[in-house]
């Protein structure tokens, strides 16, 4: 069962007495071959879980870095089935690293939840984060995922009230993604102390590992967030390397740049309980 990969991964990380490193890249940015190389580089340099972004024309929860990454990917012609094919290719040699598809509801909705669940399962996707599908609207998707064991990864935020967290936790699996700042991806960073209570509450109510993301870019920030969570998500900082490589007219360096950042972040998380 795909979800088992997520559980196994958190068990492993916990046994090593550290928080998980969750990394994000946009599939097909700037092309699918580079994305494949990047996935391997991330895995080889300490990424415990990988979020694979699926591009969307109207990413209303994303800041400029991931917006542009999505536009580059769409310009290169990336379709949802290409994102799944990329996951499948990675899965051929890697049976352990959880892959989470992250994006927006519409492309998945158009494919049809059942058809998507089937295709995602075959591609070795373990869970999805669809930003604009809150608990109130993901019932049909969860039903479709059930027989494949794919996780619906839910988001909790600083605006999620005590009362609401139970709603967020109900039906969630894999882990919870705690959005550290009210804002878009790549925005300003949060003080771990401000969200400590919210993260703790999310963990207690859901019984799931809680990973913190939004505004985490450096090893130092990651280590600070790791102290209050079970995992740390870094996205825009990875995506920025595509832009930097493109500006330097050196796309061949993308996987290497991302691997280096993953290594730095992974080192920073070692020994932080």
């Amino acid at each position: 069962m795909p979800t088992q990969r997520i559980t196994d991964r958190f068990d492993k990380v916990r046994a090593e007495n550290r928080a998980a490193l969750v990394t994000y890249i946009m599939a097909g940015d700037p092309d699918l071959e580079t994305s494949y190389q990047a996935l391997c580089a991330l895995r080889d340099n300490g990424a415990d879980i990988i979020e694979l972004g699926a591009p969307f024309t109207d990413p209303m929860a994303d800041g400029p870095a991931i917006q542009r990454a999505g536009q580059r990917s769409l310009k290169a012609g990336t379709k949802l089935k290409d994102v799944l094919a990329l996951a499948e290719r990675f899965r051929e040699d890697d049976k352990e690293t959880p892959l989470i598809l992250m994006g927006y509801a519409n492309p998945v909705h158009l494919m049809g939840y059942d058809a998507f669940a089937d295709a995602a399962s075959q591609a070795g996707i373990d869970g999805t984060i669809l930003v604009d599908l809150p608990p109130e609207e993901d019932h049909e998707l969860r039903q479709a995922y059930e027989k494949y064991g794919i996780s619906v990864i839910r988001l909790a935020t600083p605006t999620t009230t005590d009362k609401r967290i139970a709603k967020v936790a109900e039906g969630a699996s894999g882990f919870l993604y705690y959005v550290a700042v009210a804002g878009v991806t790549g925005a300003g960073s949060a003080d771990p102390e401000d969200i400590r209570e919210g993260v703790e509450r999310a963990r207690k109510v859901s019984g799931l590992p809680v990973c913190v993301g939004f505004g985490v870019r450096t090893g130092e920030q990651a280590a600070a967030m790791a102290r209050i969570s079970d995992g740390v998500v870094v996205g825009s900082a990875f995506v920025d390397h595509v832009r930097l490589a493109l500006e330097a007219d050196d796309t061949g360096s993308i996987a290497g740049r991302m691997g280096k950042l993953a290594e730095e972040l992974s080192d920073a998380l070692k020994g932080v309980a």
Partner: peptide, 12 residues
């Protein structure tokens, strides 16, 4: 119809 928004906006 429905309420297809990010969790940050749901409480509001």
């Amino acid at each position: 119809g429905g309420r297809y928004v990010a969790e940050t906006l749901m409480p509001l």
